[in-house]
Every structure is written in C-alpha cells, then in structure tokens.
Design a protein around this nucleic acid. Structure first.
Lengths: 169, 169
DNA sequence: TCTCGATTGACAGCATACTTACAATATGGA
DNA sequence: TCCATATTGTAAGTATGCTGTCAATCGAGA
C-alpha cells in the first residue's frame, strides 16, 4: 500500500489509452502541418481532396461518411476548399437539395504536388520506432479502429461513396 | 462494376498513420464522453482536474506543460472548470502575474465519483483487441509518444510541475 | 395524388487546439 | 537603479469536431 504518493498520481493520465491517443493525434497533426506548410493544407482538407478525387461528383453527406468526418464540420471544410479554388460545387441535376463536389484543375495539381510532403509526414510519425514495430503498431491500430468503428459518432461508411453512381447495383 | 480505380485511391488515406490516429482519437473521445455523460466532463477537463489534484497550487502555464496542452486553450478549459466550481483560482502571493489553481471540495468529490466511469471508458477503447495485443499497442504507443515528444507543438514537460514548490533545489 | 417521414445543407452553439499579439509583471545584467 | 528581456494570462483569429435545429426537398405509402 503506497501511503506516501497521492491517491491519484499523474500516471492515471499518462498511462491511459485515451491520453496517448490524444497526444499521438496532436503530434501527427503537428508533423503533417509542418511538412505541408508550403501548401497550407490541413490533414482533413487533404483527406477531403483525395476523397473527392477518388469519387468525383460525391455530395457532402456521402463525403462525410467516406472519411468518417462530421457532416456539420465538413461544411466549413468544403467552404474553405472552395474559397481556395481547389474544388467546385455544382447543383445536382436530379436532387435539388444536394451539391456535387468536383476537383478543379488547381486542386488536382495541388494534390499531385503535395504527395511527397504527405508521405514524408506519414513516415516521420512512425520513424522513432523500429521497422518491425511500425508494422505491428499499424496493424493493431487498423484492427482497433475497424472494430471500434460503430463506437465513434461518425462511423466510417466507405461503401456509401458508391451510391452516387446509381443505386441499382 | 465501376470504372478502373483512380490513380489515387482511398487507401492513401485509410492506411496512413495520421488518419488512423485521428480516427482512434475520435473514437476514444466518443467512448469517454459516453461513459462519463452523467458527469458532463470532457477528457481534457478530467486530465486538468487530476493534474491540479496532484499538484495543488500549480499555475496555468505549468499545468499546460504537465498535460501537454496548449496554454491558450487551457485558459478556457480552466474558465469552464471554475464556472462549474470544480476548481479555484487564487492570486499568487509572490508573483502578481500568476494565479494558482486548487481543487474545490466539489471538484475532489467529482474526481472520486467519476473514476469508475473513466476506467470503464479506457478499458472499452482497447476492448476489441486480445489482451496481449492491448499490452503491445500501449507499449508501442507510449514509446512513440515519448520519442516524438519534441515534434508536438506543446511538448510534455512533466518535471515543470515541481517548480512551483520552490526553485532553490 | 397527397402527406408523412427521411434526407440534405445550412446554421448556431460549445469545446478543443493552434497562432499571433498584447499589457502587466518579473528578472537579470549593466 | 534602470533597462532589455522574458514570463504570465488573456484575447482575437482560424480550424477541427461535436450537438442541436431548421427549411427545403425527396421518396414512399395510403
């Protein structure tokens, strides 16, 4: 029975998974922003651009499902990307409510140019670990994120992206 | 069957460490908030309370170093904790600039009561993994966060907390 | 066809998380 | 002592990330 130490020490924080996930996310964003400084693009904006490129003509709601990103927040992200002329919003011919998203030439060029920086950032995040440990961590994290998908407020729904192609198939 | 895959697929996002860290952080916060719903306390507020309890009379700047939390953001966190009467701010006798932070009786009681919920939340985050994998993931993550400490905008400085006890040593 | 429930984008509001800037204060060296 | 420099809390501004709500619109069933 440790009588000298306080009933609750900082270990209750430092060793908690939630704290480590928060710290790691902070670090990951800091590294990403630093590597991509020249392009003034955030991780979320990058993920949005990649998704729109992969699914041209996707609407905002489906995009939010594809990157597991809150629908409300995504509105302002799209706004900023449109302001920077990286994407275009066009009214849907079939549905007056939705606006379809497309990459502009400028956005496609940016995406092409930024890839080396993004890859450098992703590599830097794991660099302190031994190569074998990097693989292990990524595998466990992929597994955990997948198995916990429904626990998040905005579960990933990758298959939603296909719906705008037609719902027959 | 859709057309051929685009030059950049969503894998560029889904398999990136940064994306996995962001997802896992989202999930962790969602689980924490859900488990602690009855107490209306966020993860950051919880970490702040534990730190103030461990280091009574700490000031805001040092607190930010102890939980690796941005100094500016911490201001509003402290404000909210004070508004809920969980902590008190008292002017420092020696330094007119700083305000010292103390847990109130109400705050101490809350901290005592919320612990089971917090532990349930932390357990739930890793629950989908096998016990051995949980240990591995935590160990690798702890290592990675520590080795990447300087990469974050607000590096953890746990030893800073001791300074308010006197700088003679 | 008409109406009810669901969907969509927009908005307001709260809580992190960061940047820069600023005034008040403290500290160390000339 | 005086002054340059540093620290502290605060604030404004930007960007996630979530909760609600709302009007417009759509779709399905009576």
């Amino acid at each position: 029975m440790p009588s000298k130490s306080a009933p609750i020490t900082m270990d209750a924080v430092y060793t908690a998974p939630g704290y480590l996930f928060r710290r790691m996310q902070q670090i990951a964003v800091a590294i990403f922003v630093e590597e991509c400084k020249a392009y003034d693009l955030t991780p979320v904006q990058y993920a949005s651009l990649v998704s729109i490129r992969t699914h041209p003509g996707i609407d905002a709601t489906r995009l939010s499902a594809v990157i597991a990103f809150d629908r409300s927040t995504l509105g302002s992200v799209i706004e900023r990307l449109e302001a920077k002329a990286y994407i275009e919003r066009k009214p849907s011919p079939g549905d007056k409510r939705t606006k379809l998203l497309y990459l502009t030439k400028c956005g496609a060029a940016l995406l092409h140019d930024i890839i080396p920086s993004v890859e450098r950032a992703q590599a830097r995040m794991l660099q302190p670990l031994k190569p074998a440990d990097r693989k292990t961590l990524l595998a466990l994290l992929t597994q955990l994120v997948d198995l916990n998908n429904e626990a998040s407020r905005v579960p990933l729904r990758a298959e939603d992206a296909l719906e705008h192609l037609g719902k027959s198939g």
